[in-house]
Design a protein around this nucleic acid. Structure first.
Length: 891
RNA sequence: GGUCAUGUAGCUCAGAGGUAGAGCACUACGUUGACAUCGUAGGGGUCACAGGUUCGAUCCCUGUCGUGACCACCA
């Protein structure tokens, strides 16, 4: 006997345990020879499951389970990302709590600590994913820093290096002065902030370089960088300053003079039209500097403090303090003309919270232009498909304007760059130090000198570099492995739009380069999860929904159902706890259906049963409905419409299976049916069981736990994980069959009767007699034979099939689908109410008729769509008949 | 400044060139042995606005307005 409720907490762990084996097996063995692969986006090793992970995981798992059921050899490749900076922060903080400062450790010691930490507390998220029901084989977990992945990274880097695509260059980069490392453009996010625009006087220089009385005014938000100024620029067209071009100005607080240049960068509309050029600390100024051959002057150290050649009294000051002091000094010299509040955007590193400072340093860059061209082509030609398609535009846009990728980071945790150099600046890139030694030996032998000592580049690679190799490195690349042959390219990538640039495009670029193939065929971009008000979830806002918490409260299936139901092809979705509650309610509904079926011996019925052979009208009807719904559910999944998928099976269970079928068969099963109907009861039990099992299979990808549990309860020998439900594998009697049509018709009649009763305020429990005017001989037979279940649906006491329907006291006559009915209720009926209800019916019909008439009177419609026109014509006739009958009904 | 979305019931959102949908909320009724984590019934929308294409537009096209996201710029 099933318990009163579905006890998710007890059952879920058992199902997870039970499924492990089959999940692992079906990677390599299943009914079909074809494979289906999803490379799961590797979460940070420091990560803990949040609702965003939960959402994207559910989508991936639905696909995995669906394909596994269809017989594919299904691989969900799990893994973890070493998350360079993020992990370094977490571990540093932990060490600090133990009183250890990472700076006091050697690099090797620190890295050992990180590995220790990973062994103890890293990767918890994988177990959380399993709790979500992710059907992945944890034996296959890979890590971006494991030996195989590291090998792939080395191979990729050296190959790109020797192809001339990776090179070291002195260039301006985004610099994080807190972490003291370079960042890629993508890691910088701008925030609008209130700031100040300071108007500073730069005196014009006399011939001898001394300041004159005259000055120009330069507006800036960053006065402290003036020490790095190498020019002041004005637009060619700006008439105000033409006469000054070629003059030099004195740089305040210094003894230097700098030229006044004409450059298009300067915008006459902005500030004073004069802009100070600081090539070492501004991306635009760097470009201006290159155009005019200015030497960038670095005035900032790695921690963002001012350094020589800045005047002594400013040296060593952090930027904020320097700014104050500079302004004071300018003020005292009367060089500060005015201050103006403005709103401007300031670049931040989200991870450290530091203001990012552009700074010139030596960094490793990957030349991406060529790679991007092929990546563009792969999507343009349809080799890779974005779902929804519009995201391809975002992808195109970025790749068309791609900049070199700054690969190097000045941190310790990550893949160290495999380049060794000698003091003379020769560089040797190799996958091992020995190899680098050999290269160096060969190099210096040619020159005839001894081999100087080699030093490895201290930088590590951007975390996204190893991520970019992930789909193929996890399958064994650079080896020509079996996995790679069978499971590559992968089928679908499921991810958020926020990492189309970071990750998606880079995987495509490098896969095309190294394997001459796309990494995946479809990119499904899932919407971003927000709270119920459309706000981003964040701890500071306190609007975070913790998936683990709500899984505890409502059960995992409920959470999965809520999330899958939200998976619309849009931009963002809103989740609230009440949605999960509704999900839980549906799981309860399933549970109650199971209890009902069990109670009525629909469990353990013989299974050698062909649904095509059913005869009872309700059985014919439900089999047909199941056929329709499983087809649509299947198609929704094929189309990545997880929302419609969950809707379709929920609708099937509640509105079709429960409200009609179960309500209908209740009377048959309750023993009210005549004894001759024993075989009929058996057929009902078998059909109910068959449909029930079909339903469990169909819903399983979204709600694996409850379906798996009940599947086993129903004694199915094979796992639900591999139970297929392809549309073509389920046949039903043709829908034109008379039994089906009559069932459909009288199910509709029943709902009309209930509706009428409701509108007339007749209590549902009130027993009444239903009279039907004979319509046709087969219909009469049908009614005679199917009174019992119709009684269940309409709740009448007796059914009378009559030739005439005289209006008598206590009777209400009505019309459904050209048929005359009459119900006789013992309760007193309110004539006014009846009149009002009937009036409404008549008006609705009139309105419908009007609309259809105007439509079919259109000759062009008749010509263009003869079939639609004819169908409308039939509907019109029927409506007109109904109207005539309604108007004839006496109250 | 550029790009991409989006506007449908009180709320959250589906939808299809041919009679406007669901869930929640709301109203009324109901615990008859699957289910109150429920059931039955009901009310509620000029499908943002203006043009165009079409026999027919809420749907396709153009424009306007509103909203959102991303990229770039930001002296």
């Amino acid at each position: 006997m099933l318990a009163k409720d579905f006890d998710a907490r007890t059952i879920e762990p058992k199902i997870i345990e039970k499924s492990k084996k089959i999940i692992a097996q079906t990677v390599t063995q299943n009914r079909k020879n074809e494979t289906f692969t999803i490379t799961l986006p590797p979460p940070n090793v420091t990560g803990s499951l949040h609702i965003g992970h939960a959402f994207t995981s559910v989508i991936q798992d639905i696909l995995l389970r669906f394909k596994r059921q269809q017989g594919f050899r299904t691989l969900g490749q799990p893994g973890l990302d070493h998350a360079g900076i993020a992990t370094q922060i977490v571990v540093s903080k932990q060490l600090e709590e133990q009183g250890i400062f990472w700076k006091d450790l050697s690099r090797a010691e620190f890295i050992r600590k990180v590995w220790e930490w990973k062994g103890k507390s890293g990767g918890q998220i994988l177990h959380q994913l399993t709790r979500m029901g992710m059907s992945i084989d944890l034996e296959r977990v890979r890590f971006t820093m494991d030996p195989k992945s590291s090998q792939a990274v080395l191979k990729a880097f050296t190959t790109l290096f020797h192809a001339g695509l990776i090179a070291k260059a002195k260039s301006i980069v985004n610099w994080d002065p807190v972490f003291k490392t370079a960042l890629s453009d993508l890691e910088v996010s701008n925030r609008e902030e209130k700031g100040t625009l300071w108007h500073i006087r730069y005196p014009l220089a006399r011939e001898d370089g001394t300041p004159s009385e005259d000055f120009i005014v330069v507006a800036t938000t960053r006065p402290e960088t003036l020490f790095g100024d190498q020019a002041v620029a004005v637009h060619h067209s700006d008439a105000r300053y033409q006469h000054l071009l070629g003059r030099r100005v004195c740089l305040p607080l210094t003894t230097r003079t700098i030229p006044l240049l004409a450059d298009e960068h300067s915008d006459p509309e902005k500030g004073t039209g004069l802009v100070k050029i600081t090539p070492a600390h501004d991306f635009n100024d760097f470009a201006v500097g290159q155009r005019h051959h200015l030497t960038p002057l670095n005035i900032m150290d790695e921690a963002g403090r001012l350094i020589s050649p800045v005047p002594k009294e400013f040296c060593g000051l952090p930027l904020q303090d320097a700014r104050k002091k500079v302004l004071e000094a300018l003020e005292s010299l009367n060089l500060l003309e005015k201050t103006e509040p403005i709103v401007h955007s300031v670049p931040y590193n989200d991870r450290s919270g530091a203001v990012v400072e552009p700074r010139i340093t030596d960094q490793w860059f990957l030349e991406t232009k060529k790679l991007a061209e092929r990546a563009l082509e792969a999507v343009e030609t349809g080799r890779i498909k974005f779902v929804p398609e519009s995201w391809a535009n975002t992808y195109f846009e970025w790749l068309r304007h791609i900049q070199p990728w700054c690969l190097s980071r000045q941190i310790w945790w990550g893949h160290q760059i495999p380049v060794w150099s000698t003091p003379d600046g020769s560089m040797f890139c190799a996958t091992t130090e020995e190899e680098a030694q050999q290269l160096a030996a060969a190099h210096f032998q040619k020159k005839g000198g001894p081999v100087p000592p080699l030093t490895r580049d201290p930088d590590v690679l951007d975390t996204w570099f190893s991520s970019a190799l992930w789909p193929f490195s996890t399958l064994g690349w650079p080896e020509d492995s079996d996995l790679l042959k069978k499971y590559y390219p992968t089928n679908v990538l499921v991810t958020g739009f926020d990492i189309i640039f970071f990750w998606v495009s880079r995987m495509i670029m490098l896969s095309l380069y190294f394997l001459d193939d796309v990494p995946f065929k479809t990119v499904y971009i899932n919407p971003l999860v927000r709270d119920k008000h459309g706000q981003k979830m964040s701890k500071s806002k306190g609007n975070v929904i913790d998936p683990l918490d709500i899984m505890d409260t409502y059960g995992t299936d409920a959470v999965r159902l809520a999330l899958a139901g939200l998976a619309i092809p849009g931009r963002d979705i809103r989740i609230s706890e009440s949605l999960v509650e509704m999900g839980r309610n549906f799981i309860t509904k399933i549970w109650n259906v199971a209890k009902f079926l069990e109670m009525h011996q629909c469990k353990g019925v013989p299974q050698n049963f062909d649904v095509q052979q059913v005869e009872h009208p309700l059985n014919v009807w439900i089999v047909q409905k199941m056929k329709v719904f499983r087809r649509s559910a299947y198609e929704h999944l094929e189309n990545y419409r997880f929302d419609l998928f969950t809707q379709s099976f929920q609708h099937f269970l509640k509105d079709i299976f429960c409200d009609v079928y179960i309500e209908g068969i209740k009377t048959c099963l309750a023993g009210l049916a005549p004894l001759k109907a024993l075989s009929e009861i058996l057929e009902i039990r078998q059909t109910a069981a068959a449909i029930w099992l079909e339903f469990l299979k169909m819903a399983h990808p979204a709600i694996p736990f409850v379906t798996d549990f009940l599947w086993s309860e129903w004694g199915q020998p094979d796992s639900i994980l591999t139970a297929g439900w392809e549309p073509e594998a389920f046949e039903a009697p043709p829908p034109e069959k008379e039994t089906y049509c009559l069932a459909e018709l009288y199910i509709f009649v029943a709902s009309e009767v209930r509706s009428l009763k409701g509108m007339l305020d007749i209590p549902p429990s009130e027993k009444f007699d239903l009279f039907v005017k004979t319509f046709s001989a087969p219909e009469k037979t049908f009614l005679e034979q199917n009174q019992n279940w119709l009684k269940g649906l309409c709740r009448f006491k007796d059914l009378h099939i009559v030739d005439d329907l005289p209006l008598e006291k206590g009777r209400v006559c009505f019309v459904v689908q050209e048929r005359d009915f009459c119900l006789e209720s013992p309760a007193a009926l309110d004539a006014q109410k009846i009149k009002a209800v009937f009036q409404k019916k008549i008006e609705q019909l009139r309105l419908d008729i009007q609309k259809i008439e105007s439509k079919i009177q259109n000759e062009a419609y008749k010509k263009a769509q003869p079939q639609g026109w004819a169908a409308d014509q039939r509907i019109l006739v029927q409506k007109q008949n109904d109207l005539a009958k309604w108007q004839g009904v006496k109250v």
